[in-house]
Design a protein around this nucleic acid. Sequence first.
RNA 1: GCCGGUGUGGCGAAAUGGCAGACGCACAGGACUUAAAAUCCUGGGACCAUAAAAAGUCGUGUGGGUUCGAGUCCCACCACCGGCACCA
Length: 930
Amino acid sequence: MAGRRQYPFHLIEPKWQAHWDREQAFRAWNPGEKIPSTHPFAKRHPNIPPEAVPKFYILDMFPYPSGAGLHVGHPEGYTATDILARYKRARGLHVLHPMGWDAFGLPAEQYAIKTGQHPRKTTEQNVTTFKRQIKSLGFSYDWTREVDTTDPKYFRWTQWIFLKLYNSWFNPESNKAEPIDSLPYPCELESKGSDSAEVQAKRRAYRDSKRLAYVSEAPVWWCEQLGTVLANEEVVDGKSEVGGFPVVRKPMRQWMLRITAYAERLLQDLDTIQWSDSLKEMQRNWIGRSEGAEVDFAVAQCGEFPGNECGVRDGSSSMAIRVFTTRPDTLFGATYMVLAPEHKLVDEITTPGQRAAVNNYKAEVAKKSDLERAELAKDKTGVFTGAYAINPVNAKRIPIWIADYVLASYGTGAIMAVPAHDTRDFEFATKFNLPILQVVAPPTGQDWHGYVGDGTAVHSSSDTISLDGLPTAEAKRTITQWLEANKCGRKTINYKLRDWLFSRQRYWGEPFPIVWKTGRDGRPYHETLPESALPLLPPPLDDYKPTAEGQPPLARATDWVNLPDGSVRETNTMPQWAGSCWYYLRYLDAGNAQTFCSPAAEKYWMGTTTPGSTATRPTPGVDLYVGGTEHAVLHLLYARFWHKVLFDLGWVSTGEPFFKLVNQGLILGEDSQKMSKSRGNVINPDVILAEYGADAFRLYEMFMGPLEMTKPWSTTGVEGVYRFLGRVWRLFVDEASETEFEQNCTAAPDQGTEFLEKIRLGSAIVQTAPEPAQLKALHACIKKVTEDLDGLRFNTAISALMVFINEAMTWQVRPAAVLREFLILLQPFAPHLAEELWSKLNATTGAAQHPLTYAPWPPFDSALLVEDVVEIPVQVNGKLRDVMKVQVNTPASELESLAKASDKVKPFIEGRTIKKVIVIPKRLVNIVVA
RNA sequence: GCCGGUGUGGCGAAAUGGCAGACGCACAGGACUUAAAAUCCUGGGACCAUAAAAAGUCGUGUGGGUUCGAGUCCCACCACCGGCACCA
């Protein structure tokens, strides 16, 4: 517990927060906007249009405003970006630093189901709390650009972007999205005069099958407790990411987004952006690209039907089974084949004798949840179908099995098993006594059983092809060419990435701008609402639960659902990720009612060039994005996907949204455990703020350690930086005022201004030329803070500020010019205290040219930092024996003789042969003796 | 199992291949005070030694290597954290 207040932060902080609000100090200006001459930006950049000033777009991951309020993890990233935003402003850049609310989401809806309170109400309350908390930290956001994903003025454009996706297809030839109208029909559907209803329906179906937003009937993850389906990315270990409820596979009609079309670009473009290796790796793994070949195996139904061999080769018959393999070079080693139990050919190929066993097995597998299936993975199970396949390379018959270690959802749902060179196949073959045939020789002569690495092909010859002797890479190429030439296979690239399941059975989300109609063939089809009908608002409801029939809650609003012309509205809503996919674009032009973002604003803030401007643009897109790792494969992948679609369609000017991205590390509790209510180790930011103030809180979160590291909270650590701020205060303020302060430190905030005015600067602060040592201390600090901020090393920057203050406290005379520059350095970190002292310094020693928030960052003079006298360590055989104080430019020869003459060195070299002497001027001397 | 990250005092940490431990916390001693709080000053890796010191030895997860010199570079391993995981 802190004792007496170190300084009246409780008066200073509200005062300056109100001041910044009043003057809209951190407002950023769009191209063409007229800046009032009174605005601090205009004072720093007089008579220059805003778009001529180089921009810096620094973005936080906007929070979901939960009922629990801000936790200490939020301000960690926000403080880092705020420090940089303030620093970049001081460096003369035009900074865009916005904040908003990712406010659609399940908690508000669940609360609504429980209490009947409309989620809008809950959301508004939570936003109010979050905004108050965030504002109390003194962040320099441009609040005129605040966005809220649940605001119809916002989600109107989320729906609009959905229409763009709906009305586009991915052209593999141009490798980009194009308007659906540009999609050519296959010849049989080409217009030939009067088109029948049937042809029209076929055309519609054809287009619908190519859209980036499409309807699918596939099995999806259904969560009973949440009453909704979930995307792959939202399912972790067979449970919902939110709440940890069980999920099951269930075939349902759902909206999907064709993110798989962008798999290659999402992967490739990672090379163009500056993200951490681990994050890029997570995205790479999620996309899961693997290169290999598809091979068609003909099915030979023998045994129980002898002679009935159907030697299908080209895959055109249903009786060929296509497998995917990354190791086509091991084709000769395929001794059996495995289908996923769900594979659609299983029933067709199963022989009567095996049917009972196969059906049993399938039923067993269906009972298992995916979690169980993964947990039991160690123990391989499966049954023989009775059928055989023909290996196309050597016409050998191999048995076809089904086993749940083969997944229906990956590749073709079928594999050729090469037990000699695949761990899983090896286990399976061992268990079921299937033949194991070596086809790769390990390079080092190790055991080939289960050897999965590269080597040399062996035992891989037939009448038409031989791979023997070829190294793995070459064998892959050769066999793939052979497969292609013989029309029984081809080179393929496979991805783990699945299309994005985009609909939810929820109330609190964006409704789809889609209606369903019935075609003349009696089948339902979908159409979009016109853009003019946006925003499409959700209907008011009293009951937010799904209907008894399992329909989404929106289906309860029958007036809303049923339209006069007989069509019905789509009742699913979009997932929470929709709003966060593009919020960084809305910030650019948040109030625009005509378009989601004006091209001029987009080009200025995101583009690489601006016509007619000399502004330099070091980076395209968002210059720096800071947030947690938890969104590695969710938000960050989805947003990149949407951005690429908008890029292809010409709405944005960069292929990637976030040029540089930094993940802040997790803050643990004081017990080094994850903060959680159950552990009782949660730190409430409001409590820390009341006790130590915002500046101390900000400073501590940055001083804890490197931004990206996981680190434990320490309240005594907060006291440390708080004491530092107290020393800064006392460096400036005179002792008489200190006494007065002690007597008044309980003053209420509304008396704050009056009280603060009574406090005077100390008499040691004078307008005088600084001593060389004082200048040196200042410039060392400027250098360190500047370099550390450029490298995002906030902790060491703060320690440099502490070093300066520790020294400055000893000065009897404190030159105003030195202190003024120090305040500019302090401002990004502790803006409130810096402002208060800056205003006092200006009142006493003459007004500064710029308000502190836009005061130019001081340059440092390296010449001032050169030492005249340096300490040179002297080592003997690398061990430190003495330290000599010498003139900095003492020549090497003299350093050597000085070192040898040292009393402390002599005992270690006397009587020994000096083999070598390493002398590095200004650095060290190392004497090597025998 | 695979991928990524991290291992340095009692704790958070710092160190372009060149004096390991800056800065801060906690701790101890002192000054101020009737006293406390606050503040200021001093000390501090371990071992050995001593009345006290100096000197010395060891020391950045472990074991090797490169180098005049390694926390830093290379090889092999161990532990912890995060992610992925029957992905053919």
